[in-house]
Design a protein around this nucleic acid. Structure first.
Length: 440
RNA sequence: CGGGGUGUAGCGCAGUCCGGUAGCGCAUCUGCUUUGGGAGCAGAGGGUCGCAGGUUCGAAUCCUGCCGCCCCGACCA
């Protein structure tokens, strides 16, 4: 993509409504535009990041055994009356009426609908375990939306639902998601720590929040510092091996870790002082096991080996991809702008032509652009006629992991400069070596 | 939902107290020069002053009502 043709409305000055880094930087980097309180349009750069995030989420859900489908955003009130949540959910649920005065709602979550789909088709324990998920927009009418995408009212959510014949099998399903979540966040460059969580209005008795550490995080968290050194299972982890998964989950839940709401200061103080870590965190995922809370009232049953009906044991598992955009920026930025991890960067590399219109620089940039694009690399070529300083500022702001600086000085020696955004390190290389380096 | 702010050009702001027909910086457009850390000079365009009433010869400014948005708290993927 050529920058001259990319719709990238960057701002030099910070819009006054933005207080925290991610909100400020998303607006400045032209990633999104606010349309109403807690409601945002994603611009091309923001959408690119979101798509990278959802691709990783999807891969890991599929690897763990999930089946992707897509449920609608609008749901019927009747379904929610059946589960008893229509009245319980309160004002956070956006209720609307269609032209026939039928009561509808914009889904804040999908337990009811997925249960309805499940019971319509699944009859036998032989069809279990089953994990269904989708990635869909949700609406929760937050009293006070804030922090840009981090707490919007309309947000994208990956929500998965598991169905099992009994509690033991459900525990295996829960563990699949637990491990998938560890992997999902790690692939984005994030260190996530599972913490025992309050189950809230969704209900149930087994739940973990996945918290990533960021200095500007919303909540205060307390944990054993050894979690920072734990290895995340690699892609060869066997999700069918219930015992193996349980071992991993046991390890990741054995040490103290709690958000401030669940914090037990006596337990925490009992830890040796050097391993006590208190930090700021952002919740990016939440998993629940809630047994038969929905399957009983909604009669989602299968016939068991004994020939009698069994209400299925369910779990639900959420990740907020739009929130993750903000969380990633909170975790990876400096005064100059965003520092995207490569896995989620909108472009992997950007070429800065420091003398646009110069015969040598233009030719060198065009060749680099062709060569890198030809290798399937997401490359952004800054072919605008801005001065070098402006190009540096833009590249740093939008946070592309690799910058290739092509200027008359270096080209005189046949060299261009490869700069790494994350640590600012630079290296003088021939254009061929740069291509080789980036295609390793 | 309580408390506190705020609304003037795309963005950041001044002007409001003390009424006289709207200004600054950045951005945008044109031209020339410039090209390794947000360029310089010259010129140009762009605003129903959040909305609706009212007071007045005259309202961005005073009065009344409404709306939007932000921040702090209680609540949450």
């Amino acid at each position: 993509m050529r920058l001259s043709r990319l719709f990238l409305p960057i701002l030099k000055e910070t819009p006054k409504e933005a207080e925290i880094a991610s909100h400020r930087l998303m607006l400045r980097a032209g990633m999104m535009r606010q349309e109403a309180a807690g409601i945002y349009a994603l611009l091309p750069l923001g959408l690119r990041v979101l798509n990278k995030i959802t691709a990783i989420v999807r891969e890991e859900q599929n690897r763990a055994g999930g089946n992707e489908l897509l449920m609608p955003t609008i749901q019927s009130a009747e379904l929610w009356r059946e589960s008893g949540r229509y009245d319980d959910y309160g004002k956070e649920m956006l209720r609307i009426k269609d032209r026939h005065e039928r009561e509808m709602l914009y889904g804040p979550t999908n337990e009811e609908m997925i249960t309805e789909i499940f019971r319509a088709y699944v009859r036998s324990y032989k069809d279990l375990p089953l994990n269904l998920y989708h990635i869909q927009w949700k609406f929760r009418d937050e009293v006070r939306p804030r922090f840009g995408l981090m707490r919007g009212r309309e947000f994208l959510m990956k929500d998965a639902y598991s169905f099992d014949i009994d509690a033991a099998a459900a525990r295996h399903s829960y563990n699949r998601m637990f491990v998938a979540y560890l992997r999902t966040f790690a692939r984005m460059g994030l260190k996530s720590i599972p913490m025992v969580a309050d189950t809230g209005p969704i209900g149930g008795d087994l739940s973990h929040e996945f918290i990533i550490l960021a200095p500007t995080g919303e909540s205060e968290v307390f944990c054993h510092s050894d979690y920072l050194t734990y290895e995340v299972p690699d892609e060869n982890v066997n999700f069918e091996d219930a015992t193996g998964l349980q071992t991993i989950v046991d390890k990741w839940t054995s040490l103290y870790a709690a958000t401030s709401e669940m914090h037990d200061s006596a337990k925490f103080e009992a830890l040796p002082e050097p391993v006590r870590m208190s930090a700021r965190g952002i919740e990016v995922g939440h998993i629940f096991y809630f047994g038969t809370k929905y399957s009983e009232p909604m009669r989602a049953e299968v016939t068991g080996p004994d020939g009698t009906p069994h209400a299925v044991h369910m779990g639900s598992y959420g990740i907020g991809p739009t929130r993750l955009i903000g969380a990633l920026i909170e975790a990876f930025h400096d005064d100059a702008g965003i520092k995207w991890p490569e896995a989620v960067a909108p472009f992997r590399v950007t070429i800065l032509n420091l003398k646009q219109g110069g015969a040598d620089t233009d030719a060198a940039c065009e060749k680099l652009y062709r060569d890198l694009s030809g290798k399937g690399i997401d490359v952004l070529y800054d072919d605008t006629d801005n001065r070098p300083g402006a190009k540096f500022a833009t590249a740093d702001l939008i946070g592309i992991p690799w910058q290739i600086l092509v200027g008359p000085k270096g080209l005189a020696d046949g060299k261009v400069e490869l700069k790494r955004r994350s640590d600012g390190s630079r290296e003088l290389l021939s254009p061929e070596d740069v291509v080789a380096r980036l295609t390793l």
